[in-house]
Design a protein around this nucleic acid. Structure first.
Lengths: 232, 232
DNA sequence: CGCAGCCTTGACAAATGTCAACAAACGTGG
DNA sequence: CCACGTTTGTTGACATTTGTCAAGGCTGCG
């Protein structure tokens, strides 16, 4: 593993506080792989052999049932995924596929569990990370149950605007069909939702969004820190 | 705190493995209270001062946004709730209210965090519990995004049947209006969904459900361990 | 170019929510 | 134990939201 990636992983909240020797031994058993786009990395139902870390590219976590499928989340560098399955030594609940060419580190789940027992700081970090993951999903569920698709889109745009630096003009971070699935609607519906936000000062040109009237869209979207604030 | 309750809490997966002295000191700072029905125990957005344990009765975890509200989960004895907020020392994401007369133990969040640092077995238990909570919410979200309301009801009935012992006749565990909210629909819609399941051999009389044709309803519901299996 | 995939649009269908009315169940106080 | 009022559940008519299907346009890439 290149030294720069080694250091990037080390900087993750999950690994930054642990003892050097533990981190080194964790990484010894790990390996890094390059994947092309559209590769299925894991399949729901399989045993969780590795904790995954996205180093570059992006990964779609999705689920399938009865012929339907839905994107649960998109993972971007640098972060881990399927920590919970690793911890519980339980089958994956979601499948994962690369959206673009991606570089992924794989850390044997067994090593993660062993290191957890040996390193108190690592254990604390895992707990903190898991608690945050839990809270993120709760927020997603609140959004699904309390907001219409138009409201979900409006609030998503405000979140994405913020992530992109807060300017009036910004880009979507992935395809609209993917965004539709993440937001829990069909692509056709997303198209119409974008048009439905035009009266509130939203302009769409391809993947580029312009917020003409910040106050207006916020008055409609009613963003709420207990749903939309990603950090807390 | 009565001795029997003390022992009941001790038996929870979260507390069963920790050192005696740590458990005792945790419980020293805790206190138990009786609440009537329909009391709001916590309100979303408030700081998380206590880890709660339901000893008897039942508690509704719900959320509010823009005049709408939705039940996220019902907590039954003996189990804890809002562990994640306690761990992260972050505001509650959900409100909680008693559904009936309930007995609740309150453990200062600060003590939980301190004991976490002192007791490795407790730390492991917390991680395991959080990972399980996370996976439960993921399952709930999969159900919301992949199933129609009729399918959600059918699968809920199968889960509830199993919890009740597996017989063809069993009772709902709470009011239909609450169930409707948990399943993400209106009470009117739930009424119609029950009627919609009649062709598959479901009979409803008040709070009592009869499954006349197990194979038929399962063929319709298509239960899946990666969504419906509560333990794994 | 020309193909393939994504996005958009329109017409329509299905699912879900809303409102109003009424029936049934429940709890309380007489 | 009954009568009353309140809450919950059901039903129908209707509106809104969302999904489906089919067609056509746009875009990017070989």
């Amino acid at each position: 593993m290149p030294d720069s990636e080694y250091r990037d992983i080390r900087k993750l909240a999950l690994f930054s506080q642990m003892a050097d020797e533990h981190f080194t031994s964790l990484m010894r058993g790990a390996y890094v792989q390059n994947f092309p786009a559209q590769v299925e990395l894991i399949t729901e139902g399989e045993p969780s052999d590795f904790l995954h870390v996205v180093l570059s590219g992006s990964v779609d976590l999705f689920s399938v049932w009865n012929g339907r499928d839905s994107s649960m989340a998109i993972v971007r560098p640098i972060s881990t995924f399927i920590l919970a399955a690793t911890i519980r030594d339980a089958p994956y609940l979601m499948s994962a596929r690369t959206l673009e060419k991606s570089r992924i580190a794989l850390i044997p789940s067994q090593d993660v569990r062993a290191t957890f027992d040996a390193d108190g700081d690592f254990a604390r970090a895992i707990v903190s990370e898991l608690a945050q993951c839990y809270r993120s999903v709760i927020k997603a569920q609140k959004e699904l149950k309390l907001r219409t698709s138009l409201e979900r889109l409006a609030n998503y745009l405000l979140r994405q605007q913020r992530r992109a630096g807060g300017g009036a003009v910004f880009d979507l971070e992935f395809e609209k069909r993917r965004l539709a699935s993440v937001l829990g609607m069909t692509p056709e519906n997303l198209s119409r939702a974008f048009k439905g936000l035009r009266p509130y000062g939203i302009t769409v040109k391809g993947t580029c969004i312009t917020i003409d009237n910040q106050a207006e869209i916020e008055r409609f979207a009613k963003p709420n820190p207990l749903i939309d604030n990603f950090s807390a």
